Every structure is written in C-alpha cells, then in structure tokens.
Amino acid sequence: MAKYRLMVAPNGARRGRGDHPALPVTPQQTAETAAACFAAGAHALHLHVRDDEGRHSLDAGRYGEALAAVQERVPGMAVQITTESAGIYDVAAQLACLEALRPAAASVSVREMARDPGLAARAYAVCQEAGTQVQHILYGPSCIAQLRRWYRGGVIPETMRDAIFVLGKYSPPVLARPEGLAVFRDATADLCLNWAVCAFGRYEQACLLAAVAAGGDARIGFENNIETPEGGLLADNAASVAAFVQAARDAGHSLKECRS
C-alpha cells in the first residue's frame, strides 16, 4: 500500500485558545506541540505565528523566535512557514516576509499572489534564489488555472512542483468530503505535482486517508479541524496525529522514513 509524509498545522491564522485550550499560540507552546506531534509521527510543522493580541502575524522577528524554539525543542522536524494573508496582509507584506526570512520551506497561496502579479514574480524569484521549498496552496480550479498560466509564463519556476489541495472551507464553513479530491486530481493530472491534502472539519481523517490511498501526502491539525470523526473534541494536535497514523496503518499505509 502507500507510503506518505505527514505535516501538522497546529494552529492556523484564525483559531485561538477559546476555540480549544490545547491550541498553541506562543512560540513555546508551538514548540511543545511540535515535539509531541513529531513523536506521534508528523514529519513536518506548518508554522503560523501570532502578535501580542494573538492575531495572525507575518512578522519576521516573531517567526525567528518561533523557529528557534522549535529547532531547540525538536531539531529533527522540518518546518514550513506560511505566507497566508488571512485578509490582513497584502502581497508586499508577504514578499517582505519571504525576503527577510528566506526560509527553508514556505506555503504560498496562488490566489493571494495573483492580487499583484508583479510582486508575485519577485516573491517566487526570491524563493528560487534562497532555495525555499514552495508549496502552492490551491483552493480550486481557478487557482490551478493560474498556476498553469504562471508555469507557462515563467513566473513560477518549473521546478516548484509542490502543492496542497484544500478541501472544504473555514469561513463560511464547508465540511470537506473525500469525494472533493477528484476535482483537484483531474485538473492537475498533467502537471506532475507533488501534492498533499488538508481538509476542513470532522471528516478530515477520511479525506486524508483518501489522499494517501491516491498517492498523495497529508496535512493534519487544528488549523483545519479540532473534532473527532464523531463530532467530539480532539484532545490535542498530537492525539489527532496519532489517530490518523493508526487509521492509515489499519488501512495498510505507512509513514515514509523521516528526513530532517
């Protein structure tokens, strides 16, 4: 059966500890969560940081603090930063974040970059220069069409072939369903993408199992879902990771060997 890589997204841009008391907000909380998730089977961390009021931030200094905390606590875990705007940041701010950090890995929304094509080209060029592993966030067919145009036009380097398919929505809430994967796979069949899936809502596990069975990777965590498949609250991110790893094992799938 399939082998897969598993990333954990433990907080996201919108939820706080009022939504779940185990959702990490500070660098130390994030580092502790990362360590527990790594022990449970997650290969990598999708990192968001917050300002002093707990709001989503793209501040390079805050990222530096969180990256250092995670590196100290769990040095073997790969870390991907987000450039998500969350309705707060423009493309100039996203570019500034990438320029300041030059991270090892970053998720970049094609839809958000398309708000300023000139700056988008600079952002992808900065990532290419820095060796940043870019994962394109794809929300649907329009994002895939834009990605395709930018490959043809040379805006996005041909080598940047990592993508994540987003099933469902946070707001307005739309529960992800496994059958939603087919739209993405059909629309990207000729692009030779290294793809993963994240899924909003309590059917997250079923969606990710479908992704792994189809040859993709998975991203799990409280950014997308805080519920068990039955609708109860998950204990924490590590419990979510452990439950998925076990479900995947029961289905005959196994984790790839961890690479730092």
Rank of each mutant, 00 (worst) to 15 (best):
V110R: 02
S109V: 06
P103Q: 14
R102K: 03
C192E: 15
A121M: 03
G221L: 11
A42E: 14
L255R: 14
V25F: 00
T132I: 02
A214K: 09
G64D: 11
A182P: 03
V245E: 09
V166T: 06
W195Q: 01
A238Q: 06
H43W: 05
G16S: 09
N224D: 14
D59G: 09
L67W: 09
R259V: 13
P173Q: 01
D186R: 15
G168D: 04
A100F: 03
E112G: 01
C97A: 03
V197R: 05
A60M: 04
I164L: 13
D190H: 13
T188I: 10
E158S: 15
R149C: 14
G131Q: 06
I226K: 15
A114G: 02
T132W: 04
A235V: 15
L6R: 13
G118Q: 11
A105H: 06
R5C: 09
G232K: 06
L255D: 12
I81E: 01
A2D: 12
F38L: 12
A93Q: 02
S254G: 11
R15I: 00
F200C: 12
A2M: 14
R73G: 11
Q71H: 13
I88Y: 10
R14Q: 00
A196D: 14
G215W: 02
K256E: 14
F200V: 11
A196Q: 15
F184I: 08
L101N: 05
A214C: 09
A125P: 04
M77S: 08
A163D: 02
L209H: 04
R149E: 14
E65R: 15
N11A: 15
D59P: 07
P173R: 04
P75W: 12
T30A: 09
A199P: 10
P21N: 02
L98Q: 02
A69F: 08
Y139A: 00
G131L: 01
G216C: 06
Y170A: 09
C127N: 12
R122D: 06
G18P: 03
L138A: 09
